[in-house]
Amino acid sequence: MRFLVTAIVAYLLYLLLTIGSGTLLLWNAAELIIGAIFALVVAALVKNRYLKRSLRMLNPVRWFIWFIYLFPFLFAMAQANVDVAYRVLTGRINPGIVKISPKLKTDMALTILANSITLTPGTLSINVDEETNDLYVHWINVKPEVLKEMPRDYHPICNSFPDWARRIAG
């Protein structure tokens, strides 16, 4: 099952890359055959890495939530870039490394969160504690009120991205 899913995803990606190459639908026969062979080879090689435990990411509802998530994400990303541009030009920084505990359970959710954090306002994920799933985040402009309590409140650091990650892949 994992083998099949991986092969199909690889094949679809190959078809997307070679779209418009011929007249058989949108592809030519050689591309279709070579793509299928490569998809099978790739699937045989990586099936145990690509899908770890479950097939839950195939659920279209999760894909839909992911698509919705793109909008707040892109908005936050635009904000981040204006913010970093401002700090580059003025040199006003107040950096530090903070620990957040988003309480996510799956690797996929943690990956989505870590990548989102890196691409958005003034934060960069550095390390992850794989036992407790805590993230260590480099924050370019540390707000003093967050430092007072020890399980840090993640809302000032990364908005509500952990909630989104939980909805997509939790």
Binding site: M77, N81, V84, V88, I93, P95, I97, T118, L119, L124
Partner: peptide, 17 residues
């Protein structure tokens, strides 16, 4: 920027955007 982490901020966010 003064160190590797803050430089990464500039390098990743700005160039990606």
């Amino acid at each position: 920027f003064p160190d590797v982490y803050t430089r990464l901020h500039a390098a990743t966010k700005c160039t990606t955007f």
